[in-house]
Nucleic acid binder design. Structure first.
Lengths: 105, 105
DNA sequence: CGATTCGGTTAGTCATGACTTACGGTAAGC
DNA sequence: GCTTACCGTAAGTCATGACTAACCGAATCG
């Protein structure tokens, strides 16, 4: 459960991989199209897409010799839920902090 | 602007650092308290907290010789907004995909 | 004051992973 | 059939960063 978060965060931590992820988010496309214009080789993009796929952040669909990648809502949703948990923690913690400040002033 | 996202994601990618972040989220505390029970040394925790602080994910407050760390809403909010952008992309992309599926069946 | 506690910093080691080059494999076009 | 795109994989190189041990500064207590 927290492992899904681990792989997702690890996948999005790399700058090149994040750029690839943003490109896929802007418009689904094949590996060659995604790699075009990037400062890394096509095999590198392939490896990054593999990591993103195993993280549940993208999915691939065969299309002839090409392979179209698009966003996967599962990894995205898992990250959102994880973040929202801390958002709640943060709010309650801030409330405690504010109460304490008020009581000691 | 995207640099804030970069440092935040990079900070949360490390497992040890994520554990520290979760501990701080559960309950604010000093460095020694956070380091207690962790499989790494206290200086390591100190270095991790520095990274989390520079990422806008935690803040520190001096308290005598101690130093209390708590969550910082800024980094948390930035991450949420960044994720939500892709959430919108994902939804529209899924809609396009569904429309295309429908038109080709 | 000295002694103690708490925490940040430095230097140096070591493992992880991002990248390229070369290769193999599959589907479309002649 | 043969060739051409397109893509994933393997092997090997190299840089980044996580960690420990040792050190130093600052605040508290006797």
């Amino acid at each position: 459960m927290t492992n899904r978060i681990a792989v997702a965060l690890n996948a999005l931590a790399d700058p090149t991989r994040r750029t690839i992820f943003e490109r896929v988010g802007a418009a689904p496309g094949a590996v060659g199209e995604i790699a075009a214009g990037l400062p890394v080789s096509r095999p590198a993009v392939s490896q990054h897409l593999k990591v993103l796929k195993e993280a549940g952040l993208v999915t691939d669909t065969p299309d002839g010799t090409r392979r179209v990648y698009r966003l996967d809502p599962r990894g995205l949703g898992a990250l959102r839920n994880w973040l929202d948990r801390f958002w709640g923690d943060q709010l309650s913690a801030f409330k405690d902090f504010a109460d304490q400040q008020e009581s000691t002033e």
